[in-house]
């Protein structure tokens, strides 16, 4: 009565098209942006890897084939960066995860003031990464920071000096900052997974006579396993690419002892303005990450097939 339906047998063509295009209209702006600002530069960047592109040299731009990769093969700094990346990623992920899991388990128990404690211990996650880097660099600085003096007092150091300028210890600086900054990430995700475990499962296990340790191994861990697997694997990729702390705290030094691949790329592009070489390193990094992801997918497949 409000609307007269349209004429009989109108060809539904227009409506079909309109209906089918609706989701594309909604997602188009986001997609266009992603393609223009991420995908296109990715492709362009891959092409740079085979060209001589130096910002300061107006005559650069020519095609150089695999020259960059040959140079890379001889580049000791690059191999050092690869080793450092493994070390940086392994230590950071391991420590973040371990302390994050412990924190999640601690917070899973109800206690007075839990909400406030939660807000406080998760706060480092909100601290901008550059500030986290600076903050820890200052803590390690014997002029204004307490850490060297404490290490000295504990007998860990002969005199209060800055570990960030010690080639053998420098990597621990960014790792410490990264652990501080990244514990909340693991704690939050693991806590959510913990709280999703049905409580009556624990009660049933207790009635069946399982102690706290048995309950942890037979209920908690199996339930957490998928979350642990996915967060650790993804976090590994993310942290191996995370150069902010290193750029801020040590800039790769001393003597390239804290240079990771990601910060090496940034240094090549930002300091030397050698975009071609930077892109070649980036391409190698991308390939390595792809291999890593493939391995994960394969691992998952075999585990699924077994299970």
């Amino acid at each position: 009565m409000m609307h007269q339906p349209m004429k009989h047998n109108r060809p539904p063509m227009m409506k079909r098209i309109a209906d089918a295009s609706e989701p594309y209209l909604y997602s188009a702006p986001a997609l266009i942006l992603i393609v223009a600002v991420m995908l296109v530069p990715l492709v362009v960047g891959i092409s740079y890897a085979f060209r001589d592109i130096q910002l300061l040299n107006p005559f650069s731009g020519g095609f150089v084939g695999l020259d960059h990769f040959r140079a890379l093969g001889q580049d000791q700094a690059f191999y050092g960066a690869l080793r450092n990346t493994l070390w940086w990623t392994g230590a950071s992920v391991f420590l973040q995860f371990t302390f994050g899991l412990i924190l999640a388990l601690l917070l899973d128990k109800p206690f007075y003031g839990r909400g406030l404690v939660q807000a406080l211990v998760f706060l480092p996650w909100a601290v901008p990464s550059f500030l986290a880097g600076l903050n820890w660099a200052w803590l390690f600085n014997p002029v204004i920071g307490p850490l060297p003096h404490w290490f000295y007092a504990l007998g860990l150091m002969d005199e209060p000096h800055n570990i960030l300028s010690d080639p053998h210890l420098a990597m621990w600086g960014p790792i410490a900052a990264n652990v501080w900054w990244g514990i909340p990430f693991f704690a939050i995700t693991l806590l959510a997974a913990l709280q999703a475990i049905p409580r009556d499962l624990y009660e049933a296990a207790s009635i069946d006579g399982a102690g706290p340790v048995q309950r942890f191994w037979s209920i908690t861990l199996p339930f957490l396993a998928p979350t642990i697997a996915i967060t650790v694997l993804l976090r590994t990729v993310w942290i191996s690419n995370f150069a902010d702390l290193i750029v801020v705290m040590t800039n790769g030094g001393p003597a390239d002892r804290t240079q990771i691949v990601a910060s090496y790329i940034f240094t090549q592009a930002f300091k030397r303005l050698d975009f071609g070489y930077a892109s070649a390193i980036a391409l190698v990094l991308l390939a390595l990450l792809l291999v890593y992801s493939m391995l994960i997918v394969l691992l998952r497949q075999t585990m699924l097939n077994k299970g």
Partner: peptide, 16 residues
């Protein structure tokens, strides 16, 4: 058909 009119291709809002 609603009141004799084919509605196959009408949006819900136009069917009353």
């Amino acid at each position: 058909r609603i009141s004799g009119n084919r509605v196959n291709d009408l949006a819900p809002k136009d069917r009353d």
